[in-house]
Nucleic acid binder design. Structure first.
Lengths: 358, 358
DNA sequence: TTCCGTTGCTAAATCGGGTTAGCGCCCGAT
DNA sequence: ATCGGGCGCTAACCCGATTTAGCAACGGAA
C-alpha cells in the first residue's frame, strides 16, 4: 500500500555510512565535525535519490520542538475578520517552515484550558492568543512554558506577554483627516459613540481609541464635533435608528461612523429622506468590511489590517521564541516585558467623501 | 522556569512499579494482562496526583499517529465561508480529541505539494481537501498514504475519495418552492444564470445544480420560468446591471437570484425605479451570506450549510480512517469508492417574499 | 621505535512512550 | 522432592531522529 517512509537509516545505508554521520551531514554540521568531502557528497546524493525527508515527529521527540504554532482564538465564525488574520499568520509561519494548529474557545474558559493542554501535549513551539475584536482578556495560566503573543487583545493583568493590536488611535486621526482634507470643518457628526470619551460601548477598546484619535485630529485643526449618537450595538439597524434620530434635529454635512455596519444603516437613513452620499453628506467609517466596497457609493473607510495583524503576531512570536532559547533570558525578559505593537490601519479612499462646498 | 513535563517514568516511580506496568494500566490493558488491583490503583493514583498527560509526540513516533487532521483549502480569505467550515471541522475533530492543521494553497499546485508534504512529515492521520466554492478539482497525487475527504469539491478524475458537498439541486427546488408556496406562478425571473441549462458561468457546480433544481420544482408545478439574465460574475454590480436590464423589458413579480450578492444588486435596481420588495417583487436567493440579514427587507435565502459541511467532512474522514486501519481494506475500499455525501441546504425564511396577489 | 596529535568516523545514550517475550514466584499435583 | 503451570510483573527492544563521547588509523616528531 503506502510505501514505507524513507528514514535516515535508509540514507545512511545507501551512502555506506552510519546513521549519525548522515545526520551530521544533513544538519549542516558536517563541516565543523570534519566529515570528508567524499562522504558528504555520498550522503547528500543518497538523500536526494531516496527523496529523504526527516520525520518531524521524531525530531520533535528528540529536540522538544515541533515546528508548529498554536493559534487559539475566542471565535472564528462571528466575523470574517478571523479569516484574514489566520491567513496572515499562516503565510508568515509557512515562510519559516512552520504549521499552525487552530483552536477555538468560544469564550469558554474550560475549553480554553483543554485546548492549551492539547497544544502543549503536541509540543507547540509557540502560542498566539487571538481575540476577534480588540479587547482586554484575562490571560490564562496554562501558557507558561511556551512563548506566547496576544493578538488583537490586551492583557487584563500585567504580564510579560507582548501584544499585537491595530493602531486605533491613529485610525481615528486618519478618519478625521479624511474629512478635514476634503475641507469639512462644520457639521461633522459621529455615529456609534461620543461625543464625550465616556460615551462608548463597554469593553470596546476600538471605540475609545477611535474616539480619542478623532477628537485629537479635529482638535488640532480647531474643529469641533457638532454632535454624536451612540449605538448599543454596532449593527446596521442601530446605525439606521441612530442616524434617523440625528437627522430629526440636525443637518450633518459629514458623518464619522464607528464601523461599516453602522455606516450601512446610516446610508439607509439618509436615503430615506432623500439625502445623497456624498453630495449632501460625506461619510467615513472604520473596518473595511467586505460590504464597504459593495455599498453604493462605495464606502471610504479606515481598514482593520487583519492580514497584517496575523503576520505581525507571528513575527513577534518568533522573536519571543528566540529569546526563549537563549540562556540569559532573564535580562531579555525583563527588558521586553509586555511590549505592545500597533499595526497601522490604512485608509481605503473610495466614493463616500466629497469636498465640502462650504 | 517551566517545570519539566511529567513523564510515564515519573508516574511509574511514584507508584513503585516499572514503566511498562504503568503504561499497561494507563492504556487500559491492565486487566487483560492480569495486573493486580493493588498496582492498578497505585498507578492510577500516581498519575492523577502528578497530573500525568502522555506526550502525544512520543506516542506518535511509536504508533505512527498524531491525533491530528490536516485541513487544506484553496483559500480561506476570499469569502467568509471558510470560517464556518473550519469551525464545524474543528468542533467535530475536538470532540474526538483531534486537532486541526490548517493550510492554504492559493490554488498553487506547488504550494499544495509542499503543504501536503509538511502535513505528511507531521504524520497527520487524515486529510480534508476543501474548496471555498463547490467545484471539480484535480486531486493531487501526494495524498495516498493517508485517508482523505474532499470538502465542497468533486474529483475531476475518478478516485476512491469520498466527497462532501452541499445539496444544491435540492436547494434549487427549495428556492422555487418558496415562491410556489407563496402563490407565485407567473413572472418568475432568474438573475445570475439560466434560463437554459447551458447558460451558466463555467466551473460553477452550484449554478448548474441550482438551475436544475429550480426548473424541476417549477416544472412539477406546471410553472414556466418567465425569463432570466446571466451574470459574468456573481457580484453585486452585475446583479444590479442584470436586473436593470431585465426591468427595461419585463415586469417581474418574483426573482430567484443565484446568490445573495446578486440579490443585493437586484434590491438596488428595484429601488432605483421605485419598486418595493416584497410588495411589488418577491426575492429568494442562495448562500445566506451575512449581508442577507442586514439587507432591508431581510433576504429570504437558501443557506450554504458551511458549519455542517465541515462537521460532515470530519465524520466521513473518521469512518475512512477506521477503514484504513482494518485489515481487509480491499473489500471496504472498493465498496465505498468515491461516495458523495450531500448536506442539505436549509431555507432561511425572512422578509423578501410575500404572497402573490395574482 | 615510541609517543602524541589529528583526522574522520561510529557506538551508545537519549527523547517518551508502546509492545513482546520471558523471568521469578508460589501453588498444587505427582 | 520435583515438576508443571498460572500469576504478576519487568527486561529489552522499537519508533526515527540528535548528540556526546570516544575509537581507529595515520602522520610526524622525539
Amino acid at each position: 500500500m503506502s510505501p514505507r517512509r524513507v528514514t535516515l537509516a535508509d540514507v545512511a545505508k545507501a551512502a555506506g555510512v552510519s546513521r549519525p554521520t548522515a545526520s551530521l551531514v544533513l544538519s549542516g554540521r558536517g563541516r565543523e565535525l570534519r566529515i570528508s568531502q567524499d562522504v558528504e557528497q555520498r550522503v547528500l546524493r543518497a538523500a536526494e535519490e531516496l527523496q529523504y525527508r526527516p520525520n518531524i515527529v521524531s525530531v520533535g521527540l528528540r529536540t522538544g520542538t515541533s515546528r508548529t504554532i498554536g493559534f487559539v482564538s475566542d471565535t472564528v465564525a462571528t466575523s470574517r475578520l478571523a479569516g484574514d488574520m489566520i491567513k496572515g499568520a499562516l503565510e508568515a509561519a509557512r515562510e519559516r517552515g512552520f504549521m499552525l494548529f487552530i483552536g477555538e474557545t468560544e469564550g469558554d474558559a474550560e475549553l480554553e484550558r483543554l485546548l492549551l493542554q492539547a497544544m502543549h501535549d503536541r509540543q507547540v513551539d509557540g502560542l498566539i492568543l487571538a481575540s476577534m475584536f480588540t479587547r482586554s482578556i484575562k490571560v490564562p495560566k496554562g501558557i507558561t512554558g511556551a512563548p506566547a503573543v496576544l493578538l488583537n487583545a490586551l492583557p487584563k493583568q500585567p504580564t510579560p506577554l507582548p501584544a499585537v493590536i491595530p493602531d486605533e488611535v491613529e485610525a481615528g486621526r486618519r478618519a478625521a483627516r479624511v474629512l478635514l482634507d476634503a475641507g469639512h470643518r462644520d457639521d461633522i457628526y459621529l455615529i456609534g459613540a461620543g461625543p464625550r470619551l465616556r460615551d462608548v460601548p463597554t469593553q470596546s477598546v476600538a471605540a475609545v481609541e477611535r474616539l480619542v484619535g478623532i477628537r485629537e485630529a479635529l482638535g488640532e485643526a480647531g474643529v469641533k464635533v457638532a454632535g454624536a449618537r451612540t449605538c448599543p450595538d454596532w449593527q446596521p439597524e442601530y446605525g439606521l435608528t441612530a442616524t434617523r434620530d440625528l437627522l430629526r434635529t440636525a443637518q450633518p454635512r459629514a458623518l464619522i461612523c464607528f464601523n461599516d455596519r453602522i455606516a450601512m444603516g446610516a446610508y439607509q437613513a439618509l436615503d430615506d429622506i432623500g439625502l445623497k452620499v456624498p453630495a449632501d453628506v460625506s461619510i467615513v467609517s472604520f473596518d473595511d468590511h467586505p460590504i464597504a466596497s459593495w455599498m453604493r457609493p462605495k464606502l471610504t473607510t479606515v481598514a482593520l489590517p487583519h492580514y497584517e495583524l496575523g503576520r505581525k503576531a507571528v513575527d513577534v512570536l518568533f522573536t519571543e521564541m528566540e529569546l526563549f532559547t537563549e540562556t540569559d533570558r532573564d535580562r531579555a525578559d525583563t527588558e521586553r516585558a509586555g511590549e505592545v505593537y500597533r499595526v497601522p490601519m490604512p485608509v481605503r479612499s473610495r466614493e463616500s467623501v466629497s469636498p465640502s462646498l462650504a
